[in-house]
């Protein structure tokens, strides 16, 4: 889970979930009460990525 996904690709990460920002990859303080659903979705997406077969570095976008 990283914000600069090109770096993830360059180090050979195969399942990449793009995140929000460098100081708060899994969160967004500006969202206040809506931060939790966003965080939940991101981590669920990471779990989904681990359940998915990939052949090369793959970015798991929302939706």
């Amino acid at each position: 889970m990283a914000t600069i996904t090109t770096i993830s690709e360059s180090v050979g990460a195969n399942r990449i979930v793009p995140t929000v920002a460098i100081p708060y990859p899994v969160g967004d303080p500006a969202l206040e009460s809506k931060e939790e659903p966003l965080r939940e979705e991101l981590v669920e997406r990471a779990i989904k990525a681990l359940k998915t077969d990939v052949e090369k570095p793959t970015i798991f976008k929302k939706g």
Binding site: P23, V26, L42, V43
Partner: peptide, 19 residues
């Protein structure tokens, strides 16, 4: 990086709560 948001809520960087 600016540590304010992570110090406030470190799970924003390492989401243990979600796991």
């Amino acid at each position: 990086y600016d540590p304010v948001y992570a110090n406030e809520f470190p799970d924003r960087v390492a989401p243990l709560d979600q796991l």
